[in-house]
Simulated scan of single mutants.
Amino acid sequence: MSYENWSARGRTPGETETEVRSALDAPQVRTRQDAAIALVDAAESGLDRETIDALGERALEDDDPEVRQFAVEALGVAGAAPAVVRQALDDAEPWVRAEAVVALSRAGGDADQPLLVECIKTDPHPAVREYAAQFLGGVAEDVPEAERILAAMLAREPNAFARAKAAESLGELATDRAEQALEAHGVTDQSEDVARAAKQALASARGTDPEELDVEIGPPSAPGSGPDTPAEQSVDGYDPAGSFDSARSGSGSPAPGGAPGFEPRRDLNTDPEDRT
């Protein structure tokens, strides 16, 4: 049994899976973190049923958010306990929820279109929406809905990383409507990273080299400019953890994702051209 994760080197709390599993119950937070990280690597070769059960308990009940996050990641690598991982989508810590999206979206995973669309529309943290957008193109069965959600996200989502993943998924869909969205809202994005991702996605959709596209990307944005500046990401009184329940229930939180006036359930449910 080897543990190659860089952050666990020299700190693996055991020589066998049984010893590492026992360390998940240690009173020291750092020991539990190291055990969960070590099991992320070990999961690639498969884990015992007892270890999967122990990780499931840590994923849902540990007081430390990093232990919960690493436990979810290990379960995802092992392709185990999808019901537990789905429950982690309701965690108060955004990075646990984001890891749950990734875990459910792994090859042969349990992330379907309704789940990913719900995460995009309702989660108040941009990382969760980013990962949901990244995987939506690969599982879309209702292609028109996926086109609409991703196109609206590319046009309105305040976070550049999330917009870039929406562009990539549109390229994966490779439909006429997806190409139109990439041309209208992607390659013209004020974030150079998003514009380049959109150009690459457009080329992929058309089966050509990006350099062969007759598409010009605007001048690089200045550092700190664009829709992801601290001023635009902060909202007085906005608490992602406190607003999470209301956002997921659809009642609307003040600016999910930290962008004033951005409401995913409203803004991502219509075509970009339909908003009045």
Rank of each mutant, 00 (worst) to 15 (best):
1 M>Q: 13
8 A>R: 08
10 G>P: 11
15 E>H: 14
15 E>G: 14
15 E>Y: 08
16 T>W: 01
16 T>V: 07
18 T>M: 07
18 T>Q: 12
20 V>F: 01
22 S>K: 09
27 P>K: 06
29 V>F: 05
30 R>N: 06
30 R>D: 00
37 I>N: 05
41 D>G: 14
42 A>I: 13
46 G>P: 09
48 D>P: 13
48 D>N: 13
51 T>M: 07
52 I>H: 03
53 D>R: 12
54 A>L: 08
57 E>L: 11
59 A>M: 01
59 A>R: 02
61 E>Q: 10
62 D>Q: 00
65 P>T: 02
67 V>G: 01
69 Q>W: 03
71 A>D: 10
74 A>T: 13
76 G>E: 11
81 A>R: 15
83 A>V: 15
87 Q>D: 13
88 A>E: 11
90 D>G: 08
91 D>S: 05
92 A>I: 04
92 A>M: 01
93 E>N: 12
94 P>N: 00
94 P>I: 01
95 W>D: 04
96 V>S: 00
98 A>Y: 04
102 V>Y: 12
104 L>H: 02
109 G>S: 11
109 G>W: 11
111 A>M: 06
118 E>H: 06
123 D>N: 02
130 E>S: 15
135 F>V: 09
140 A>N: 07
146 A>Q: 07
147 E>Y: 02
147 E>V: 14
148 R>S: 11
148 R>Q: 12
149 I>C: 07
152 A>P: 14
154 L>S: 11
157 E>T: 12
157 E>D: 15
160 A>L: 15
162 A>G: 14
163 R>I: 10
171 G>D: 07
172 E>K: 13
173 L>W: 10
175 T>A: 09
177 R>W: 07
178 A>R: 02
178 A>V: 07
180 Q>I: 14
183 E>R: 06
187 V>W: 00
187 V>N: 01
188 T>V: 00
189 D>Q: 09
190 Q>M: 05
191 S>M: 07
203 A>R: 09
206 R>W: 01
207 G>L: 05
210 P>G: 04
213 L>I: 03
218 G>H: 00
220 P>H: 01
222 A>L: 02
223 P>T: 04
224 G>F: 04
227 P>W: 12
228 D>G: 09
228 D>P: 07
229 T>A: 12
229 T>P: 10
233 Q>F: 14
233 Q>V: 04
234 S>H: 14
238 Y>P: 05
243 S>H: 06
244 F>W: 09
247 A>L: 00
250 G>H: 06
250 G>Q: 08
251 S>G: 09
254 P>T: 07
258 G>P: 12
262 F>A: 03
269 N>G: 11
269 N>W: 14
272 P>R: 01
272 P>E: 03
273 E>S: 11
274 D>T: 13
276 T>H: 15
